[in-house]
Amino acid sequence: MKTHNTVTSNSLLDIDKSIDALVKQIELLSLVNPTNIEAEKTRFFSSKYLIEPVFKYPEINFDKFKLHRKLFTQKIECIENNEIKNFYEDIIYTYSGLIQCIETIGNGKKFYYNSLHCFGTPTEIDVENAKYILHFKDTDKDSPAFVPKYNAKEAESFFKTYSKQYDFSYHIKQSDKISAIAMVSNHEKSLVLNSNHLYSDNEIAVLTNHEIGVHMVTTMNGLLHPLKIFSHGFPNNEETQEGLAVFAEYMSDNLTVTRLKELAYRVIAVNSLAKGYSFSKTFSLLHNQYDLDRETAYYISVRAHRGGGFTKDYLYLTGLKKVYDYYRSGNDLNLLLTGKVSLEYTKEIQLFIDKGLAVPAKYITDAYAENSNTNKTVDFILKNLK
């Protein structure tokens, strides 16, 4: 005869497995990246920044309505632990929101409102923090470490060397269809490098710690649990994951004022969406008012306007602040490396580990071993963010 706990556990594992099968095909980031970024850049620049880019997106190859329906037929009432039941309710609403985002990619305001629902938008304090950062001079960008010199193929060797410390393997691919200079595809367990980009020594140092040290580490840790949701992502995991990744840059002494300003510009760009700015107006704000070079201004504008208005980018700065405060309060960062988890659910993570439904993090971010930061200005900024 099964015990009460076993029945609960089996119901939970069945529901988790069912959700796993449904959400495997949902990777918003790979679907919201335009496929014609470079062609539209040429057109936009040659028009003297007047013609609005017209972005194209990958085909969506699943039945979105059927996915919604199957998500909401999960029998979460069978989960007898209230905390866990509430958690899975949050999961279902979160993934339903992501499907709505995917349904409306390229559909202007509809996508923007769905993005708002999933990721929120900067508060006045977030915008004040961004403007505060932008007051600082970024003299570090004049150093030789910031000179672009490695193509994507050459950059690969640095990632391979850095990754030797971790007992896992992953693929490295190149793409000219991503708006970032590098990204981890959680679903494919691969690192994607932007084939149009020339990487500097500073960018290599930042990206190895950010993409491999955190994003790939949490991808690989997420696969080790009985519960699959650690792999696909908790609600609001993007803020925590990006916060952890930028914090790894800080701990490894690679976070610069230049990088912090990049994150601040992203907040300004996302805030421009809330003001109803067009792509060209966001670009003009960054390029003319903030004196950002046109290449950087273009890519930051793409990141904010892709899909029809993608608000996720402001979360890098809010996530960094939250993880920085969490660390300074003496909390365990390793708990946040267990997968694609969120700061808001640390109690649930520990509960899952205690119940044998999850395991402690096997792979630990190298940069977290000790604080190697020597940049006093960066420290000053992080301590004084509101």
Score class of each variant (00 low, 15 high):
Phe111His: 07
Asp313Asn: 01
Ile172Met: 10
Lys281Leu: 06
Leu286Phe: 08
Ile79Asn: 04
Thr338Gln: 12
Ile133Asn: 02
Glu103Phe: 04
Leu191Pro: 05
Ile19Ser: 05
Asp201Phe: 09
Lys41Thr: 01
Val359Asp: 09
Ser200Ile: 08
Phe247Asn: 01
Ile353Thr: 12
Ile102Glu: 02
Asn373Gln: 11
Glu262Ala: 12
Glu154Thr: 10
Asn209Lys: 08
Thr374Gln: 15
Leu207Asp: 04
Gly120Pro: 02
Arg294Met: 07
Asn33Met: 11
Ala155Glu: 08
Ala155Phe: 04
Lys66Pro: 00
Tyr327Glu: 09
Ser200Lys: 06
Val184Met: 14
Gly307His: 02
Asn196Met: 12
Lys386Ala: 09
Thr377Val: 15
Phe119Asp: 00
Glu128Ile: 05
Thr123Asn: 00
Ala130Thr: 07
Ile229Lys: 05
Tyr49Arg: 03
Ile268Glu: 05
Gln350Ala: 13
Glu203His: 07
Tyr166Leu: 07
Tyr363Arg: 08
Tyr327Asp: 15
Glu242Tyr: 04
Gly308His: 01
Met1Lys: 12
Gln74Arg: 12
Tyr199Arg: 05
Ser301Ala: 10
Val54Pro: 00
Tyr49Ala: 01
Ala245Thr: 11
Leu207His: 10
Ile353Gly: 12
Asp16Gln: 03
Val270Met: 03
Tyr363Asp: 08
Leu71Val: 04
Lys70Leu: 13
Ala152Thr: 06
Glu156Met: 11
Asn254Ser: 15
Arg328Gln: 15
Ser115Gln: 02
Ile15Leu: 09
Ile37Ser: 03
Phe234Thr: 07
Ser190Val: 02
Leu193Met: 09
His287Glu: 04
Tyr299Pro: 01
Pro226Glu: 12
Tyr88Thr: 07
Gln165Asp: 11
His287Cys: 06
Ala245Pro: 08
Lys228Phe: 08
Leu315Tyr: 00
Lys275Met: 14
Phe230Tyr: 14
Ala21Met: 10
Ser169Asn: 13
Asn194Ser: 10
Arg294Ile: 06
Phe146Met: 09
Tyr290Arg: 01
Thr208Pro: 03
Asn236Pro: 00
His210Cys: 04
Asp332Trp: 06
Phe283Thr: 02
Ser163Ala: 15
Tyr299Ser: 03
Thr121Ala: 09
Ile353Leu: 12
Val192Ser: 06
Pro148Lys: 08
Tyr162Lys: 08
Thr161Lys: 14
Val359Ile: 15
Phe45Ala: 01
Glu348Thr: 15
Ser175Tyr: 08
Ala269His: 00
Pro144Asp: 13
His305Leu: 02
Glu154Gln: 15
His68Val: 02
Ala248Asn: 03
Leu292Ala: 04
His68Gln: 04
Tyr326Met: 05
Val7Phe: 12
Ser372Glu: 12
Val127Lys: 00
Leu227Asp: 02
Asn151Ala: 07
Ile102Pro: 00
Asn236Tyr: 05
Glu40Asp: 05
Ser96Thr: 10
Ser195Trp: 03
Gln174Leu: 13
Tyr150His: 10
